[in-house]
Design a protein around this nucleic acid. Sequence first.
DNA 1: CGATCAGTTGACCCAAATCAAGCTCCGTGG
DNA 2: CCACGGAGCTTGATTTGGGTCAACTGATCG
Lengths: 215, 215
Amino acid sequence: MYAQASAKIELSSYVARQSPALVFDGATAQPVSFFPAGAEIYAQGEKAGVLYQVEFGAVRIYRLLADGRRQISAFHLAGETFGFEADTTHHFFAEAINATGVRVFRTPSGMDMSRQILPLALRGLTRAQEHLLVLGRQNAIERVAAFLVEMSERQGGLQQVELAMSRNDIGDYLGLTIETVSRVFTRLKEKGVIRLLSLRSIEILKRDTLLAMGE
Amino acid sequence: MYAQASAKIELSSYVARQSPALVFDGATAQPVSFFPAGAEIYAQGEKAGVLYQVEFGAVRIYRLLADGRRQISAFHLAGETFGFEADTTHHFFAEAINATGVRVFRTPSGMDMSRQILPLALRGLTRAQEHLLVLGRQNAIERVAAFLVEMSERQGGLQQVELAMSRNDIGDYLGLTIETVSRVFTRLKEKGVIRLLSLRSIEILKRDTLLAMGE
DNA sequence: CGATCAGTTGACCCAAATCAAGCTCCGTGG
DNA sequence: CCACGGAGCTTGATTTGGGTCAACTGATCG
């Protein structure tokens, strides 16, 4: 696990949205660690314990099958906390998507952090369960629509949405191939539902249509 | 929400496995409520608050799309606790699959149950995230294999597995149609991986094969 | 014993995967 | 400043796994 600052870190678009004052009572905060794009933050099977809070950038949480198929179970954006587990082992991988700053919290052994962690765990649980509906019962357009709505809402409901992740990541989050994701984006553009300002920057033109698609 | 004892309750196969001594400290336990097959325990949008512990029977947690598509996000068997939410509202439906007994725990307002609930929430989160991999990246055989392994392990790893739920429920849990579930069961029978003792009772003949399939 | 509901099986179809080119956007170095 | 190279993305042709539709079978229960 390495945490080196990459030569050049693009901050402009990754500034922590609401510099989150959430500092865990009793937990000792380490200085921010930097991870360059693609760097592993922790791996499945590693010992768990510390908590991570995204300062800027974005993180993907995922699992792999033996043959390399990947499922991203969650993205964590600026302000969000991750790294807690049911036992002392990590069950997933965590990687920086872009140049990412992460604040590490060590919880003194014997200290009970339940009160602080429970709401995070519950929100994660609800999100995961809602995502199950998307993966289990929605088609490609519905999945992408749900994804764009989710990203928009997590960025304050603005019509301009910044995607920190590649089409590949989106595919592995939505259970689709990169080609299908690309085709759906094209379809949504043709329908005038969205507009691409750049590859990773999307403007939502017809929010209602998108919402209706994501059901 | 009704909780009437059905005329005749089949207990024999639904006796609580390990009569779970888990009684929440400080929470006041109500007597066991009975729900006949198909009865609603709570609905999406209802006010949340109390916790439920399955005494016998089984419960399905699910969500619906506008057109009726259903995704079951979890099954809860004897001994398991459910009903906690991120806020004061239920985001899912909970229904008794069969005649089911549920112990209700009211938590006195002002009382902090974080310590007791967190491990439950974390295990639920891990399970949900693992299920995301199944729904996002596995094919029909792999899904059914993973399901049978999961059910077996949750019943103590015995080779004989009792399925509390219908093929329809299994389909809505695995993101498959009832026909596909049925066809996969047939294929697994033909391959000699499982044997049906009855429709809802399955014997695992080749555990290793099943494990390898579920990856 | 029918009646009914759950499950199985078969024929056909379609949405998304796969396979295969291209294209676009950048970063790098001449 | 432009040529080059490569990764990321798009588009098209084809295939296929699982969905849909439909008929049948088998269990369960008045």
